[in-house]
Write a protein that binds this DNA or RNA. Structure first.
Lengths: 356, 356
DNA sequence: CGTCACCGTCTTAACGTTACACAGCTAGGG
DNA sequence: CCCTAGCTGTGTAACGTTAAGACGGTGACG
């Protein structure tokens, strides 16, 4: 069932059928109706997408490379928000959205080479991810969220180090024995407890920058980063954070009195552990999160607000819209420190310090 | 940059380049290396997906039609599990995964007509969704999850009515004033409180079947369905369920003593409301959920276990694998009633009654 | 009445790939 | 020494669509 078939049935040329489907006003109303009727009769449901994309040179689809198994991507509220932003731009531009999971296997590069997409967005990539090379080679417009920066690829993300410095200051000021709840530092995803790890060791640039910021904040507060326990978790998961925090609170000789967590999910886990052990917040334990989710607001959590939804939109626009400025650090999105009751200093409720 | 270009550079024919990329062992090792080197040198990153799909007649991509705005799809733990199952089959078959959001607008049909996919899976479709017609017209292998059943489309899902009857019995037995927390009954998504609504009025077949099952269970327990309050919520959202349940518990003259909820999320909201009002579970209030999520297990919630992940896999296989039996009610997946402490009857902890 | 502009439709020529059939060439068996 | 089988490489012919430009017809205007 092809255009020539429909054309024959309708008594017009194939070109007229094409116009009837793609440029309705270029063809006379009566002819158009005749064509569409003929198509209906023959059960022709529209131009073959492959042929169209071959001829037009574009596919009408945006690809998102997820540096995670797909299941994790769907579970993670941050990925969720980000993809929501991407998808809203897709709907606006009438584009499809193709998900490209990265499994860590050799088929990853092939999947990216063969994907029928016009542009690519990368979410959660490790610094040395071979996928980055595949994307570069593909030569399509592409943008990385969060990092790593790479010649030839756009980059969108907040200044994680500065934000971590700010929220770290909120957590650590007045603390004597702070701790950190961290995202994984490598693709191996081993949960473990480190002390003052070198931030550079983290292979995800977001994790690295946040560790750097926390270390900055610790120094500024007169604390020795090298002694600060950093719980590296395997996943951005509340239950895992709760269990790990509980062990940390119970085991430490010096009672931990401040926790800076890299996400609200992790921070809420820490709060739950504190609650279970009857530690008062923030008197005995100050806690900060990251992302300013609704749950964080409800829990009165001091946190960093960054609209991942907005960043998803930015990423999508930067690769889709021809006029859009290439994504660079310059047009980095805004972040804010949202001060709430989970830390000391008691500024007015819901104080928002604006920053870059 | 096309195959002929690479062929010229490598001193072979275009056909050999094609073989080198697609059937590596069909071409001598030395030649293959020469071709890949030439491609590398010219920056050719592999066959053009559009051209390939035109020529081969398939795209190597599976489409999932989400009956929701994409953001909701990502938020919803059930959708998440289901998509996880679908995607695992995609990875196994080296297929891409394209998401097709349904916004309710007129562009929905166009998106489906133009999607470059080999097969379609429908998630959360209303009975009269015009999208179903677009899918049928497209003529691709397609399967609907949960319903509605439609000539020409596969169908996968559990027997929701029977399962609702079972879990409804667990909730309502011994109760005098039960209530139901329901999914939306129409696309309008209005939250509201109904009394014993006609199950047929629900326009999503899953919702309809579950209401029927609950009504069956009510009758069996000697209760009058027409008097039972049914809270129809706008979203599958814990916070919304908590607020609505709290109002219900406070307002009712006859104190509500049992709640059957259509998801664990909703049930957990109900439990939170009960906790806040100091109602003991199950003595003052029996609660049941649906899905058997980890959170439900942790909360000791009586619920229906159905593996949505497994159902996602089933859906994907039924449209992808040529040998697979066409999806029908016959090969419906299994469900189980998991009896826990949130209902009366105190069977052994974690009692699992196997069904169908 | 001739000219011009415009409109709707048609003809042509790719877009880049790959299934298929076939042609050399080598090796081994009769 | 011929014949067959297996392996490697090549030519041909689509796959279904659409951009660009050609073409004939109609109506307006001087």
């Amino acid at each position: 069932m092809t255009m020539p078939d429909v054309a024959r049935e309708a008594g017009v040329s194939a070109m007229t059928v094409s116009y009837a489907f793609n440029h309705p006003q270029r063809v006379a109303e009566a002819t158009r109706r005749r064509v569409l009727d003929a198509a209906e009769r023959l059960g022709y449901s529209g131009p073959h997408p492959g042929a169209r994309s071959l001829r037009r040179g574009r596919t009408g689809t945006l690809g998102v490379v997820l540096g995670e198994h797909l299941t994790y991507a769907f579970d993670d509220p941050q990925a969720t928000q980000f993809l929501g932003g991407v998808s809203s731009v897709c709907v606006e531009h009438e584009l499809g959205l193709t998900l490209l999971p990265v499994t860590g296997g050799p088929s990853d590069a092939a999947r990216i080479r063969e994907a029928a997409v016009d542009a690519l967005i990368l979410w959660t990539s490790a610094d040395d991810d071979p996928v980055l090379d595949a994307v570069l080679q593909r030569g399509l417009p592409a943008v990385v969220h969060g990092g790593p920066a790479r010649e030839g690829l756009g980059l969108i993300g907040i200044d994680d180090r500065a934000a971590a410095r700010a929220v770290g200051a909120a957590a650590f000021t007045g603390a004597r024995a702070p701790a950190v709840l961290s995202f994984p530092t490598g693709r191996d995803r081993q949960p473990r407890l480190l002390r003052g790890p070198a931030p550079d060791a983290a292979r995800f640039s977001v994790t690295r920058h946040r560790l750097q910021g926390y270390a900055d904040a610790a120094s500024a507060a007169g604390l020795d980063w090298a002694r600060i326990p950093v719980l590296v978790l395997a996943r951005n998961d509340r239950a895992e954070a709760e269990a790990a925090t509980q062990r940390l609170l119970q085991d430490s000789e010096t009672p931990v009195d401040a926790i800076a967590a890299m996400s609200d999910e992790l921070a809420l886990g820490a709060l739950a552990a504190a609650h279970r052990l009857d530690r008062s917040i923030p008197a005995q334990l100050a806690v900060t999160g990251w992302d300013d989710t609704p749950a964080a607001a409800a829990a009165g959590l001091t946190t960093i607000a960054q609209s991942l939804r907005h960043q998803g939109e930015l990423c999508a626009r930067s690769v889709i819209e021809p006029g859009a400025a290439p994504a660079q650090a310059q047009n980095a999105p805004v972040w804010q420190l949202v001060h709430r009751a989970s830390t000391h200093g008691s500024p007015p409720a819901d104080d928002v310090s604006r920053a870059h």
